[in-house]
Write a protein that binds this DNA or RNA. Structure first.
Length: 448
DNA sequence: TCTGGGGTCCTAGGACCC
DNA sequence: TCTGGGGTCCTAGGACCC
């Protein structure tokens, strides 16, 4: 029998009936990409499924059944092949058109439930929600309500974590996902007692904001659980964990909210397009074609989000000759240039991009990856004029809109710039992609 | 024995996230 | 043989200015 402190009202003895202000929920789709694939393949329900990254490089989403047979997250496809064959795992290349559409349906459902100003879309499969003032018990019920509604309306199952801060909500969500049978996919960490027990059970590497580098450092110092970290002094965090970032993390673990909800209309900082090459590339012509293609893609994204860009940078990753055993990030070479005025017209971006590519490319070297980044973004309505550059006619923009519309309604890339090339030997592999069921007429789901 | 100080802006790079 | 892509935020350090 647990002993209760005497000075607390019996109804509030565990803090569950106190009214809490500003609780936050994180709603996270379970194995999102796999769930999307299974939605249109009911035969795969409760079968192991994995989805691959671009280029069919590594595994980025696993169904619970695939996890159970021992397939790890983010490992290269070829390394998992044996397990995949042995356990008859279904494999899909990533199909972002499909995932993007289903993501929108899930987020729209959340906006209807919580009010659109209370939802912050954090990633393709996660949203933070700010809850009305309520008791801990009510919060739990609310979590279940979200879970059932989203599943019923979209067919996608979600896990919900609720706590006073985003970092603790993420921790709650981690616990909810870890043991779905116990949690039924909903966990709340609202009272101090709940938070302490949860943090004691979580290793630091599973905390939001602690990656590989800090994990190694913390473990070395003997700080292994979330609770250990929570109890470290702020000055220590300031020195050892990246300054203000570390201080914020510790405060958040203590229940003091430091990472506020973002307004959804906030402006982007950069838009990029980058790909691995299917095979390493060592001739300037292929590099030019790749850069031209990525520039078109990035410019298309730019226009779709109604931005223009002033700065364009391109980068390439040379293939390293001597392999080390450890996989590590290869050094990146990059170059940038700033335009006289912001633009979203593909050919205005293409020219400087290709010039940079020429400068960066070295004869005799091979490259395994390249990309284009657009920054210095300005929303279309408020482009800063430049007195010394003639106002470009609207023709460029008009032409772009036409291209975008045709590409969107027909199929991607039906219209493109000649510089993108037509053979594309460097193009990424994507052999196992499913149909874009919800966005292409010719790929609709068929019932026979 | 001695070599100013402090602010701002920019860039490169590290760390993290999904 | 084969290890993703698209982001954000923060810091350190250099250039420049007075």
């Amino acid at each position: 029998m647990q002993q209760q402190p005497e000075n607390i009202h019996p109804l509030q003895h565990n803090g569950r009936s106190h009214i809490y202000k500003g609780l936050k929920a994180i709603v996270d789709c379970n194995s999102f990409y796999c769930s999307c694939e299974r939605l249109f393949r009911p035969d795969l329900r409760s079968k192991p499924v994995v989805v691959l990254s671009n280029n069919d490089g590594c595994i980025v989403s696993r169904s619970d059944e695939a996890k159970q047979v021992g397939i790890d997250m983010a490992i290269p496809y070829f390394q998992a092949k044996n397990l995949i064959i042995k356990h008859n795992v279904s494999v899909f290349s990533s199909n972002y058109t499909l995932y993007g559409d289903l993501s929108w349906r899930v987020m729209e459902t959340l906006r209807i439930i919580a009010g659109k100003n209370n939802v912050e879309v954090y990633s393709v499969d996660e949203s933070f929600i700010i809850l009305p003032d309520m008791t801990a018990d009510e919060a739990t019920n609310y979590g279940f309500f979200i879970r059932y509604t989203v599943e019923q309306w979209t067919g996608i199952s979600v896990s919900v974590g609720i706590a006073p801060t985003k970092t603790l909500a993420k921790a709650a969500n981690y616990i909810a996902k870890k043991n779905k049978l116990v949690s039924q996919c909903v966990t709340t960490l609202i009272t101090p007692d709940e938070q302490r027990r949860a943090l004691q059970s979580i290793r630091v590497n599973h905390l939001w904001g602690v990656g590989k580098a800090y994990t190694d450092k913390l473990i070395n110092m003997g700080i292994t659980s979330g609770w250990d970290l929570r109890n470290m002094p702020e000055q220590w965090a300031n020195k050892q964990m990246g300054g203000v970032t570390g201080v914020r993390l510790i405060k958040e673990l203590r229940g003091e909210s430091c990472i506020e909800m973002q307004k959804q209309l906030d402006t982007k900082k950069m838009i990029s397009s980058t790909r691995m090459f299917g095979t390493p590339v060592n001739d300037i012509q292929s590099v030019r074609e790749a850069i031209a293609t990525y520039t078109s893609l990035a410019a298309q994204k730019l226009r779709r989000q109604r931005y223009s860009a002033r700065t364009i940078s391109i980068f390439m990753v040379p293939k390293e000759e001597n392999h080390t055993l450890d996989f590590h990030h290869d050094p990146i070479i990059s170059m940038r240039t700033t335009l006289p005025r912001a633009t979203s017209v593909t050919n205005e971006l293409m020219k400087p991009a290709l010039q940079l590519a020429e400068k960066l490319f070295e004869e005799g070297k091979s490259y395994k990856k390249a990309g284009v980044m657009l920054s210095g973004l300005e929303a279309d309505e408020c482009i800063q004029g430049n007195l010394f550059v003639p106002e470009s006619k609207n023709n460029g923009r008009f032409l772009m809109d036409m291209m975008d519309n045709i590409n969107f309604s027909m199929r991607n890339d039906i219209l493109k710039f000649a510089a993108s090339g037509t053979t594309r030997n460097w193009k990424m592999r994507q052999e196992l992609r499913s149909h874009r069921f919800t966005t292409r007429w010719e790929e609709l789901f068929e019932v026979s």
